[in-house]
Design a protein around this nucleic acid. Structure first.
Length: 497
RNA sequence: GGUCCUUUGGCCGAGUGGCUAGGCAAAGCUCUGCAAAAGCUUCUACAGCAGUUCGAAUCUGCUAGGGACCUCCA
């Protein structure tokens, strides 16, 4: 279907993408924990996978995209403290745990919509799949890879490792991992230091708890993704994604759980997106350097010089490969803003071009160049979703488009086929694959009519050398954030911030 | 301490063993009533040292800086 290559964390190489079922892709991405606002780092991962999802669809795959909502208590802090995030937050805010979940889930969806990400095809919640998780834990016990201690179920990592390499995803040996694990002050009821909980016994203080074969409790940190991915995508599926920070623990344990339960390796391609940093430091909840999306859009965070629109941020992220860290700074963001404007302006000019019935005088060399650059879009996306390279190719086309608009290059220099190709590819990529969209102002048809009227008046004024009127129109529009551009041949165009 | 990654021009950032990525900023010119926009041109970098090679920013080794994970986090 395509020559797509994907970097697989498992092999640490780019591999040709071959879906398990022809023409179909099963994609699972670890979603947010909805006990606080999503910060921008979270958004980067979801935006990256949104583009991956969009591209897979664009290429023609039928994609089932599952992204979970973690709304059940994970352990907070050290494993046996037995405090779950939702209960803690709930006590703090005097709310029902599900009120927290509801509030932040709604907030998350709103932010994702602002960023113009497509919703996943299935968005399962952990609390909605308690039975599946219990069943899976039981099966792992039955298979001999987990044990129960006082109502809590632990996964036996060392036993598992005798049969399958536990640290396979991050290329670590068990001995090394054991060395790196800290001693946990002697309260350990686990057999092995690396053992992790599949099910956790609840105390009376836990607001979220469910009955299980082992007593009242709640699911462990990793089991939800294993259980839900199996339910919706099967025991083996194509792509599992998430942030790089999840690889070493969460995804490693997912692999172990699925292997122990179903005796197969669950995922063919593991994909990990890199972190977002602020002034070189990773954006994270604990570091306190996270921007809330709203702060970014309004420019209200002290570190931000101005407001940046969702599309500005999305474009900024597209300029970097998903496996590279991305550093957030005002300068970089403003550079992206200007770049996006330049690209989008060219795209809009391109959209209204059409060949007349006049004779063609195709410039073969130029025509060839344009076709070559357009062909690069697919090539770069097929190379592990290299959006930065696609944008570079697009930017190389911008001067050509501008020159045609300015009539420095006649439109007829391009063949009809090439112009159509250019137009459709730009549209497909900018809107369908990259998920960019115009600002609302420019999209408004009434405003477009009003602007046309003002342009006509200004043209008349200029013809009469009534520059007072023409400047007044231009200057007052500028105050509103609308830029009028005089073009060669007396035409005018406009763009809004 | 262990494992792994990274180090590119004023800034942000791609990258393949040999062919100036791209964006932003800056400078000059063209266009223009003025301005903006746009166009054209200029700005050839790859942490340091050594090695492999006809040839390396790209491969290997060492040194130095930065970072991630090992503990909740996309």
């Amino acid at each position: 279907m395509s020559d797509l290559k994907i970097y697989n964390t498992l092999s640490r190489t780019k591999e040709p993408f071959e879906p398990l079922t022809p023409n179909h892709v099963g994609l699972y991405v670890c979603g947010p924990t909805v006990y606080s606002d999503v910060h921008l780092g979270n958004c980067r991962t979801f935006i990256s996978f949104d583009i991956i999802y969009r591209y897979l669809k664009y290429v023609g795959y039928k994609v089932r995209y599952v992204r979970n909502i973690t709304d059940a208590g994970h352990l907070e802090g050290d494993r046996d403290e037995g405090d779950d995030k939702f209960s803690k937050k709930a006590r703090l805010e005097q709310l029902e745990p599900m009120e927290i979940v509801q509030r932040y889930t709604v907030g998350f969806h709103k932010v994702m919509e602002l960023f113009n990400t497509l919703p996943p095809t299935i968005e399962p919640t952990a609390t909605g799949h308690i039975t599946e998780q219990i069943k899976m834990a039981q099966q792992i016990i039955d298979n001999g890879y987990a044990y129960v201690v006082d109502g809590t179920v632990y996964f036996d990592v060392e036993k598992y490792n005798t049969e399958k390499p536990y640290g396979i995803l991050t290329n670590r040996k068990l001995e090394d991992l054991l060395e790196g694990t800290r001693e946990l002050g002697g309260q350990d009821e686990k057999k092995g230091r690396l053992d992790f909980a599949l099910w956790i016994k609840a105390g009376p203080e836990h607001l979220m708890q469910w009955p299980s074969p082992w007593g009242m409790g709640f699911p462990g940190w990793h089991i939800e993704c294993s259980a839900m991915s199996e339910k919706y995508l099967g025991k083996q599926f194509d792509i599992h994604g998430g942030g790089m920070d999840l690889a070493a623990t969460h995804h490693t344990n997912e692999i172990a759980q699925s292997q122990a339960c179903y005796k197969v390796s669950p995922v063919k391609y593991w994909m990990h997106t890199n972190m977002l940093t602020v002034n070189g430091v990773r954006m994270s909840k604990s570091a306190g350097n996270g921007f809330l999306p709203e702060e970014l859009f309004s420019g209200s965070h002290p570190l931000l010089e101005k407001a940046y629109s969702p599309m500005n941020v999305r474009f900024f992220m597209l300029q970097t490969h998903y496996r590279s860290t991305l550093d957030f700074s005002n300068e970089a963001l403003q550079a992206a803003e200007k770049g996006l404007k330049r690209l989008w302006d060219a795209y809009e000019k391109l959209g209204v071009m059409s060949h007349g019935s006049g004779a063609e005088s195709v410039d073969a060399e130029l025509d060839e160049k344009v076709r070559g650059l357009v062909a690069e879009f697919d090539e770069h996306m097929n190379d592990d979703f290299n959006t930065a390279r696609v944008l570079a190719s697009m930017f190389e086309l911008v001067p050509i488009i501008n020159s045609i608009k300015d009539k420095t290059i006649p439109l007829s220099a391009l063949s009809k086929e090439t112009l159509t190709l250019l137009q459709t590819k730009f549209k497909s990529y900018l809107e369908d694959v990259f998920g960019l969209k115009p600002s609302n102002e420019a999209d408004n048809t009434k405003l477009q009519g009003v602007m046309q009227l003002l342009i006509d008046i200004r043209k008349e004024a200029k013809t009469k050398k009534d520059f007072a009127t023409s400047d007044k129109i231009r200057n007052q529009l500028a105050e509103l954030g609308i830029t009028l551009k005089d073009e060669k041949g007396g035409d005018m165009s406009w763009s809004a911030e």
